[in-house]
Design a protein around this nucleic acid. Sequence first.
DNA 1: CCATGTGAAGTGATTCACAGCC
DNA 2: GGCTGTGAATCACTTCACATGG
Lengths: 212, 212
Amino acid sequence: MSTKSDHIPRATIERLSVYLQVLENMQRQGIEVISSGPLAKACDVNASQIRKDLTYFGEFGVRGVGYNVRELIQSISRSLGIDHQWNCVLIGVGNLGKALLSHREFGRRGFNIVGAFDCDPFKIGEEFNGLEVVCTRRLKERVADLNVRIGFLTTPPERAQRAANHLVEAGIKGILNYAPARIFVPAEVHVEYVDFFHHLYSLAFNISVDKT
Amino acid sequence: MSTKSDHIPRATIERLSVYLQVLENMQRQGIEVISSGPLAKACDVNASQIRKDLTYFGEFGVRGVGYNVRELIQSISRSLGIDHQWNCVLIGVGNLGKALLSHREFGRRGFNIVGAFDCDPFKIGEEFNGLEVVCTRRLKERVADLNVRIGFLTTPPERAQRAANHLVEAGIKGILNYAPARIFVPAEVHVEYVDFFHHLYSLAFNISVDKT
DNA sequence: CCATGTGAAGTGATTCACAGCC
DNA sequence: GGCTGTGAATCACTTCACATGG
């Protein structure tokens, strides 16, 4: 829908989230127009980096002026594909799964969790945030009925691959994997790994090397 | 302590977390020796990438054989600086802060949250996971007393910078910033940003481009 | 003989520097 | 005059290919 040329660096996509966050905070502060220089400072990146990142998706600025904050937020949202709602399911209703189900921010950002699945009979029937936990057998019908494209995977590591298989089989297009295990899926299915410790490890490493 | 040469790519550090995760799962399965080929497959990276990453920190393998899983886990842990306990504080006891305080996995991994701070008088005195919420004014003494080096920042975005200033002032060396805002700190203080939406945005983007 | 460790080659991303435009 | 958009130059990371060693 949005890509001007062929390949967009993964790093660019990651930075777009940052720009969006900073621009939203600026908008809340009433800033209407911003140029790449100050925006770069606020995002802690290089100014031409921002300009280059943006031109992968179009020309959003006005020479001699800068970017309109509201329009740029819209343009980036459209570029990322988050200018509309996404239906999601969650598989694995443990502590983390429950926490995510109860967290309303996902819905507020357009990611609606419309199904919660588990194969444990003791969990089936429980309710979180108005959503009843359902047997994994019924995953496929639910995904088809509600045009679900994203699955949150929150099982223990040893069950991650099996859950991933279920999601793929159900026709999911992307998996947000919170389980501490790699999973293997067909190339056309996208996987993102969420690891709560990875940032903590980076901090530990960076602090450690400083002292040496 | 651990760096053989001067500069280690940030990407290498991020991959070490992945290797560690995969190696721990292998160890649980009883695998004792692994060579870079199969390890690379399991981590979904290139084999020489793994070998090069490891040589930044030392020579951990045996030619013709491979790596001892247990020893490699230890070596990577030591390289990352997570072979010992880290005391941490948390500032901003909102929903997310409470969730993190109640989550025992951090302690299990060696990151002990030994203080919870907030400036809201209604929150001070509340208790989570056996930890009493304390006024931010007392942050500095606590950090000094317990040799705390890492701070979890879980305030709303508009209070993130002020909280960051408190942490810096208290002598913190690294900040794990969960607030959806950039923060600015002296160069010697490390910051890692945790953004729950960034992976979701990447998925949305990748799924969207597929369809075009 | 097999797998590590590593310089050299290749690839990809970032920054520079300036032409183009408002 | 000021700021965007962009080819060219630089820098950083990854992969190759093989010498080294158990």
